[in-house]
């Protein structure tokens, strides 16, 4: 390859990436989500999952949970860049604070008859999914679990007539007695 003719420095060496879960406490003001999502896109960071709702209504405070991947230095930059935003109170790397509890909820709709229908019911019960809706040809199941469990469940359901999926993304919390 020809050497790139540029007056910018070369890209830095590639380091291993890790998956991290960040909890971000923010003022729930207009545009705060756009600010955070925009920071990720503008600086070229990944968002694997993003969950947000107001958690303290009186104080108008929201908690945003973001799952991202990056090298250690990128994760550190993400944290610093987030903390630099005026409405951000603090950012906690839940992956670093120890094995955080992580859950997401998914709804899946499966359509089928005969063996497929029976197999779908069996799988749902094996995973401990709840049946939210049923017709003679379809089910809507709810499953809460880790991202891996949800992924596995969806993969299996694909084989037995999956037609629709809706997922919440990850909600997470550090283990132990300490509050954030």
């Amino acid at each position: 390859m020809l050497q790139m003719k540029t007056h910018y420095p070369d890209a830095t060496r590639v380091e291993p990436s890790h998956r991290r879960t960040l909890a971000i406490i923010v003022d729930n003001e207009p545009g705060v989500l756009a600010r955070i999502a925009g920071l990720f896109s503008g600086r070229g960071y990944n968002i694997e999952s993003l969950t947000v709702t107001e958690t303290e209504h009186e104080a108008h405070i929201s908690r945003i949970t973001i799952v991202t991947t990056g090298t250690d230095s990128i994760i550190q930059q993400i944290k610093s860049q987030l903390e630099r935003l005026v409405p951000v109170h603090r950012v906690v790397d839940l992956t670093l604070t120890g094995e955080a509890v992580e859950r997401e909820l998914c709804l899946v709709k499966v359509v089928g008859k005969g063996d497929h229908r029976v197999e779908a019911m069996r799988l749902a019960s094996a995973f401990g999914a709840r049946t939210l809706d049923a017709t003679l040809t379809s089910f809507v199941y709810e499953l809460t679990g880790t991202t891996d469990e949800v992924e596995r469940f969806i993969k299996l359901m694909t084989a037995v007539g999956l037609v629709e999926v809706s997922r919440t993304g990850v909600a997470a919390m550090a283990r132990g007695a300490e509050g954030m």
């Binding site: 930059q77 610093s80 903390e83 630099r84």
Partner: peptide, 23 residues
């Protein structure tokens, strides 16, 4: 060139913006 930048130094960095540090 970043990988050849000041190769022998220990570095002190004073900055009001934490995101400038180790960027």
């Amino acid at each position: 060139r970043l990988d050849a930048f000041s190769p022998f130094s220990k570095r002190i960095h004073v900055d009001i913006d934490p995101s400038s540090i180790n960027k």
